[in-house]
Structure formats: C-alpha cells, structure tokens
C-alpha cells in the first residue's frame, strides 16, 4: 500500500541511508500531500528518526533524493522546521526559555545581529501557544520533560515555517501536555501547514494522524490512515525484521562494501 499524490509537499525517491555502510533504510519511495498531519510509525530501530534526519540534511543519503515543495532542501530552508528529540541536547546549558525560543528566529536575523523586540514578541506569542508563557525567564535545566518538549515546539513555531518535522514530540510527556500538543498540531494543519511526526504509540496514532507511514527499515505503507491502518499491514511492520535483509546489511558493514556500485 503506497499511495502517491499529485504535487506532494514531500517526495522521497528511492532513498537508501546507511550507517557505516550498513543500510538502515532501503529504497524508500513515497509522497506526502500538503496540509496533512502525518505519523511515522514503526518499531524501535525501524529508521523513523533516520528518515527525518536525512530529510533535514543531517545524515547523507547513500542513494536517491528527497524533494520538499518540489525543490532541494537548501532552496526552501526558510519554510521547513525541525524539532529534534528532547534528549539530543544538554539541558544544563546556561540559557533561559526565551533564549532557546529566540533561536527559532536566528535564520531571519542573519550574521552579527541581535534578536530585536519584534523577535521577542514572536517568541512570546509562540510560548503562549504552547502554554509556557509563565516560564519565559526560567533556566532550562529547571524544566520538566514535558516543558522542555514544549519549549522545543515553541522554537520551531518561531521559525514560522510551512512544513514541520518533529522527532518524538510526545516522548516523556504527560497526558495533558500530549493533548495540548496534538490540539496545536491540528490547528496548524487546519491553517494549511504540514506536520510530520515520529510517533511511538499505536493506539493514539489512529486518532492523531490523517496520513500514516509504516516503516521498518523499508516502507511498509504510506497513505491515508483509514487505508493504511490495517491488521495485515501493522503485522507486517511489527512482525520482526526481515531476516535476510538484516543479514545482507550486516554483511555490507562487515565487508565495508559500498551500497551502490
């Protein structure tokens, strides 16, 4: 099940990604329609984060290409925003909540320029959207996990992008925060933004997303939730790794063999 759309906002073509020669994503082909709320679902080690990081240019591709808005990432960076996993940074860094959210404005500021009052206004507005306005001066190490996640979201909102990639925004977040975040994401897609989320929980996935990618080192399915979320496809996604595929991958790593000739 791989449903293709016209004028996709994200197009991934024959993408293979490897870590030290061992492919973690094999030949991914997919398209995502604009304005959707997309969930990337799959077991641990399925390559969910990898596909986001590759799309954001943080990991090199072994083969294939990714187009956003029909263009290369470098041409449309201002319209794309990325929310990394919360654990990817050291929260003991000497910075306040406001400092972190303002980072979302840096690409607009350019070199040598300090954030202006207008940027602070935008940052404050974004903090209000995630319900963190009361914490604006708080040192980031004093925040709870859910609060840290919301600060990261506010930073992404401050970029005012059209396409958002979020790596596990619900990890380690309490139920109330999760509900607040999903409400916000729905508001964003209602305004025509596209939000792509790596997600762990199968049960909530049906409610949250209107487009789902099932991933387990290869693309099992991509399409509207009602068509993709079937017993059979889920079984295929979670039914364990393909033994032969893993074996060949291990071999490539062991022999340090190129993935493509």
């Amino acid at each position: 099940m791989n449903i293709q759309v016209e004028n996709p906002i994200v197009e991934i073509h024959d993408l293979t990604v490897s870590y030290s020669r061992k492919p973690v994503l094999w030949g991914i082909d997919l398209t995502i329609p604009s304005g959707s709320l997309v969930g990337i679902i799959g077991p641990n080690g399925a390559g969910k984060s990898t596909i986001l990081k590759t799309t954001m240019g943080l990991i090199p591709v072994s083969s294939g290409y990714i187009k956003l808005f029909g263009k290369d990432l470098d041409e449309v960076r201002d319209k794309v925003s990325y929310v990394p996993q919360r654990e990817s940074v050291d929260w003991d860094f000497p910075a306040s909540v406001m400092d972190v959210v303002l980072m979302g404005r840096y690409n607009r500021l350019g070199l040598f320029k300090r954030p202006r009052n207008a940027d602070k206004d935008v940052a404050m507005e974004c903090l209000q959207k995630v319900g963190m306005e009361a914490f604006v001066k708080r040192q980031i190490s004093q925040l709870s996990g859910g609060q840290q996640q919301r600060v990261f979201l506010a930073r992404a909102l401050a970029q005012d992008a059209d396409l958002y990639f979020m790596d596990e925004p619900f990890a380690g977040v309490d139920a109330a925060t999760e509900a607040a975040i999903i409400k916000l994401l729905r508001e964003m897609t209602a305004k025509g933004k596209t939000v792509i989320v790596v997600h762990h929980d199968l049960q909530s996935a049906v409610d949250y997303f209107n487009w789902i990618l099932l991933l387990n080192m290869r693309l099992v399915a991509s399409g509207p939730t009602d068509k993709v979320f079937t017993q059979q496809l889920l079984q295929e996604t979670y039914g364990g790794k393909l033994t032969l595929l893993s074996k060949v991958g291990d071999l490539l790593e062991k022999e340090q063999f190129p993935t493509r000739e």
């Binding site: 990081k53 943080l58 960076r77 925003s81 940074v89 400092d99 840096y106 070199l111």
Partner: peptide
C-alpha cells in the same frame, strides 16, 4: 562578541543549527 549568537547555538544544539541553514 560579533558571533556570540551563532557560537551559542552551535554549542547548545548543533543539529538544529544545521537545519536552519547555518
């Protein structure tokens, strides 16, 4: 002093800095 903002960002969150095209 001139590059304070950029140095801070890459010290805190290097990957994010990359994604905004820094």
């Amino acid at each position: 002093i001139l590059l304070y903002k950029e140095f801070t960002l890459i010290s805190f969150d290097e990957n994010y800095a990359r994604t905004i095209g820094l």
